[in-house]
């Protein structure tokens, strides 16, 4: 619901006679266009000859192929809560949950497939994940010969974590206590002090 006070009316610009006549403005526009057309030096800077050259990325926020993070024990950090697949606007994440084989957790993904061809790399899954298990890596040159090949399964996504963890370490320290232990085992990993704030 948009409230009255949130609506800002922007006045249409008042046009001068030359604006109304179009042509002077068209000519002014052409000046800009032509300036760019003849500025040879600039051009070389802005275009990167991919794949021979690769652009430097800001690793922290680049949204490339996904990875599934591992906790310090090397287990998949995902708890199969389906938040990512719910948040996903492209419906490209397919999860099947199951009972985990580990005593400190109850749910884990038996299957975790991402259709990288359907994905729009919006990063919503990363935002939605309550345990920072899914992250987008700076890895962007992604090719495959078939559609099937581009559906990344859990093993592949975990492998991507192994490959990329040096470039982009896990954003937050792993938190394994989501109240999942049910109080039977007091010795569970706690969120670090910084995170608690």
């Amino acid at each position: 619901m948009i409230r009255d006070e949130d609506i800002m009316m922007v006045a249409p610009p008042t046009l001068t006679t030359s604006d109304k006549l179009y042509l002077p403005q068209v000519i002014a526009g052409m000046r800009t266009t032509l300036r760019h057309m003849f500025s040879v030096a600039k051009r070389a800077e802005t275009t990167v000859q991919y794949p021979e050259q690769k652009r430097k990325l800001r690793v922290e926020n680049y949204r490339g192929v996904h990875r599934l993070n591992k906790d310090p024990d090397g287990r998949v950090a995902c708890v199969a809560c389906f938040m990512c697949s719910t948040a996903c606007p492209a419906h490209c994440i397919h999860i099947e949950a199951g009972e985990s084989p580990w005593p400190d957790r109850e749910k884990y993904p038996v299957k975790f497939d991402i259709d990288e061809l359907r994905c729009i790399y919006c990063g919503m899954c990363e935002e939605a994940c309550p345990c920072d298990a899914i992250e987008l890596t700076p890895h962007y040159d992604l090719v495959g010969k078939s559609r099937q090949e581009m559906v990344f399964d859990k093993e592949k996504l975990l492998r991507i974590f192994d490959e990329t963890k040096d470039v982009k370490p896990r954003k937050n320290p792993p938190v394994t206590d989501y109240g999942l232990t049910g109080g039977q085992d007091k010795a569970v990993a706690r969120p670090t002090a910084e995170r608690k704030v």
Binding site: V79, C81, M83, E106, K107, C131, Y178, G179, L180, G182
Partner: peptide, 9 residues
């Protein structure tokens, strides 16, 4: 007060 925040699972 005592309810766990394990809504995700």
């Amino acid at each position: 007060v005592n309810h766990p925040l394990d809504c995700p699972v």
